[in-house]
């Protein structure tokens, strides 16, 4: 991971110049989708990848972000820029609430996954039944390009905004992964009881992780709402949304900094390609995702980046061991001095 700053700067460089080279609106749209999925999947990664608490209900946070900013904007005229923070705050509170219920009562493994799934469904049903959320009709956001209102006439602006978001969150995840919080989370993932016995406050660390993860996912939700200009319960709170959020990280490698980006770079183009090729068949892209998911689980269970790290990390370790065994005696000697 020491190469990370170089890799990410290189990626940022390529992404920054992408709009200057590619003018086609369709490709711009795909690039925006890639960055947007990288963002939400990276947010999921903080909770699920690093601390191993697999959430199958991140739609709860995503939808909260999308609905908070959109309702504030359409009903009260509040700028979505403010709605973005309000959504992130509310999502963090919901995350803390879910976390409190789940972690206090020691919900672990698949039980946590099923629990989060249920929470997302509960929120969807609430949204669908109250007039203030327009029930199942969704919210149509009037299009009036104004940077102060998070609306732009050019796709390129949306592109740079999501690039900034995705980049910032990735850097954040990088720093978290090297911080005490990150090490604590990984310890929890590997063996929660052992971590606790070594003095890691597992409850507190998991709560911090879910709050950060929820608020960043909500930011993705606000961006989605402002970019698509239409949200409805089915596209914000459904299981499909939760699945789409976790897929890039799983495919790329959960618990790695680059995983969500790599995963997003792979599955979004594949999804778009299948949609283009088999446009008459609704569901072709999701079927492709299913096949990829099964194959990754069978052959690269730690994701693409995880596999890479294992393979090359191990070789490096093996080489180190060999070196040590050659100069073994000397090493011990030097150490003594």
């Amino acid at each position: 991971m020491r190469k990370f700053p170089i890799l990410i700067s290189l990626a940022l460089l390529i992404f920054t110049f992408f709009p200057l080279i590619v003018k086609d609106q369709y490709y711009m749209h795909i690039a925006i989708l890639i960055l947007y999925y990288a963002l939400v999947s990276q947010a999921w990664n903080i909770l699920s990848g690093y601390s191993g608490q697999f959430s199958f209900g991140h739609a709860a946070f995503f939808g909260t972000g999308a609905y908070t900013s959109s309702i504030l904007f359409t009903k009260l005229g509040v700028s979505p820029w403010i709605g973005l923070f309000a959504g992130a705050l509310i999502a963090a509170l919901i995350g803390l609430f879910i976390g409190y219920l789940s972690f206090r009562f020691k919900l672990r493994g698949v039980f946590f996954s099923l629990g989060t799934l249920a929470f997302a469904e509960i929120l969807r049903i609430i949204i669908q039944n109250f007039d203030i959320f327009n029930k199942t009709l969704g919210v149509l956001i009037p299009y009036k390009p104004d940077p102060l209102m998070f609306q732009f006439s050019s796709r390129t602006t949306y592109y740079y905004i999501i690039l900034l978001f995705a980049f910032a969150v990735t850097v954040l995840v990088y720093y978290i992964s090297r911080s005490k919080l990150g090490y604590n989370l990984v310890a929890i993932r590997e063996n929660e009881d052992a971590a606790q016995s070594l003095g890691v406050n597992t409850y507190k660390n998991k709560m911090i992780a879910i709050a950060i993860s929820a608020s960043l996912t909500a930011i993705g939700g606000t961006f989605y709402a402002q970019y698509m200009l239409f949200i409805e319960p089915a596209t914000t709170f459904s299981n499909d949304v939760s699945i789409n959020i976790l897929l890039p990280a799983i495919i790329g490698g959960a618990g790695t900094v680059l995983g969500p980006i790599v995963g997003s770079l792979i599955i979004i183009p594949i999804g778009e390609l299948t949609t283009t090729l088999f446009g008459n068949f609704v569901g072709a892209n999701l079927m492709a995702y299913g096949v990829i998911l099964i194959l990754v689980m069978l052959y690269l269970p730690e994701g693409i980046v995880g596999w890479f790290q294992n393979k090359f990390g191990k070789e490096k370790n093996a080489k180190k061991k060999k070196d040590n065994s050659i100069n073994g005696g000397e090493d011990v000697g030097t150490f003594k001095n």
């Binding site: 199958f56 493994g109 699945i243 299913g290 998911l293 099964i294 689980m297």
Partner: peptide, 14 residues
């Protein structure tokens, strides 16, 4: 176990 859950999720999607 989460990978097992994910693989059945993949089967469901297919």
């Amino acid at each position: 176990e989460h990978n097992q859950l994910l693989v059945t999720l993949g089967i469901m999607l297919v």
